[in-house]
């Protein structure tokens, strides 16, 4: 097969799938094949209301109080391993001792400390989100998808009981991707879910005060974030902290005396499980955290 190598062809295919346009410099046959791929992708369709209703009816008979629905934003929105669920160890680290011990041992070797918990135990009033950075607020996941203009990542299954969680809202801090959060709260148990999404793009790019860069972690797509606002891992300080565009800090919840220093974070996704390594002290470089991440695959 002449023209592009297999690797180049796949890269172009991925690019087309993300909505990229074909170059006129492509070899003729490859361009035609990729054009066909683009047309095949365009043939995708959404489920009809009939199908959604049909499946919902079958799975949730009238006697059941738990109806299956795709329409309520906070329910759709996640579950998602709350992003951070996945959080590799976050969810597991402090909640479950064996996993927590293991994770801490692994990371202590590299001087990395996990921020604790994605389920902060608020002691004050019911969580109220007061962002100072001008947010774009959406009411549905599809609105977020439309605004993002790139495929969002909806991370993994989430163990939280979504029936008890209230959707608080979406916020995005950039109009070209990379950083979107969705927040959930519970008046009784004070759950909080935060999700992050990104798209692969070349070169570092700024998002607010942070700086992001696409990375490869043992063949899996990842994201390196430097100086990321600590609101990302709200549980660490049992409060949400937003840094405004003017540098003003706003804290919601209990402070516990921690300073709202930004963090470094490395995320990568493997088979829809989102892994996150966090350096709360910004002492580790991108290369350091990549070394930790890649080492996870060396025992395979």
């Amino acid at each position: 097969m002449s023209g592009l190598s297999d690797k180049e062809f796949q890269a172009w295919l991925d690019f087309v799938e993300r909505g990229g346009e074909l170059s006129s410099a492509l070899p003729g046959d490859d361009a035609a094949d990729l054009d066909l791929a683009s047309r095949l992708l365009a043939l995708r369709t959404a489920p009809s209301p009939h199908l959604a209703a049909r499946v919902a009816r079958i799975l949730a008979p009238p006697s059941s109080t738990r109806a299956l629905t795709r329409t309520t934003a906070w329910r759709r929105a996640r579950v998602g391993v709350g992003a951070v669920a996945a959080l590799l160890a976050l969810a597991l680290t402090l909640t479950f001792t064996p996993a927590g011990t293991w994770a801490q041992e692994m990371l202590q070797r590299f001087g990395v400390v996990f921020l604790p918990g994605v389920m902060p135990q608020w002691s004050g009033e019911f969580l109220k989100v007061v962002p100072t950075r001008p947010p774009v607020v959406f009411s549905t996941e599809s609105e977020v998808q439309a605004a993002a203009e790139f495929p969002l990542r909806w991370p993994t299954e989430f163990p939280f009981d979504r029936e008890r969680v209230t959707f608080l809202g979406y916020m995005t801090y950039t109009n070209d991707g990379a950083w979107i959060e969705s927040l959930y709260g519970d008046a009784k148990d004070h759950y909080l879910e935060v999700q992050v999404f990104w798209r692969q793009r070349p070169g570092p790019w700024p998002v607010g005060d942070a700086r992001f860069e696409s990375v490869d972690v043992a063949g899996w797509e990842g994201l390196w974030g430097e100086g990321v606002p600590a609101s990302f891992i709200a549980g660490a300080r049992r409060s949400l902290i937003y840094k405004g565009l003017d540098g003003t800090l706003t804290r919601v919840g209990e402070a516990e005396g921690s300073s709202p220093a930004p963090i470094n974070v490395l995320l990568w996704e493997e088979e829809e499980i989102l892994y996150v390594l966090v350096d709360p002290n910004q002492k580790l470089s991108r290369a350091d955290l990549l070394r930790v991440a890649v080492s996870a695959y060396q025992d395979r």
Partner: peptide, 14 residues
Amino acid sequence: MATLIAQRIRQFLA
């Protein structure tokens, strides 16, 4: 090691 992580997450989920 990542396999271990994934297994533990799965165990937690299930």
